[in-house]
Amino acid sequence: MGFKEKCFKKSLWVFHLSAGSCNNCDIEILDLLTPKYDVERFGMKLVGSIRHADVLLVTGIVTKKTLPRVLEVYNQAPKPIVVIAIGACPCTGGIFASGYNFAGPLDKVIPVDAYVPGCPPKPEAMLAGVVKLLNKK
């Protein structure tokens, strides 16, 4: 295990980026912070700037207007960064894939490390996704 991987074992700081979502996944992410799930006990917390983050959570389809912004956020991120696609929309485009403003699934735009499908995925599923990813590292 290298130094970088070791840093990822504990206290992940998460940055949440909604690229064109319906709010469902976003609310469920916020739900993780509240008393029922309380991920802060693992040292995970939402941060206000991508420059402080270890993990980038992306929700929603990437629309044509957000596409340059998503790229910019990714470029500003300190590397290594873990990108997790939350929900069916960033994974495949889901129900909105046929829309005229759809710029492609997230993995066509930036490299993605994990996918958590579901509409919306349950908070438990999101946690399970992160745990699986960390075990693999």
């Binding site: 909604s18 909105f96 046929s98 829309g99 005229y100």
Partner: peptide, 22 residues
């Protein structure tokens, strides 16, 4: 405009029943 998904147009390509889920 960041969140514009073009739902009104997508609805035109779905059946009345499917539009509920959109």
């Amino acid at each position: 405009g960041y969140n514009h998904r073009g739902i009104e147009k997508i609805c035109e390509s779905k059946t009345f029943e499917q539009v509920f889920y959109v």
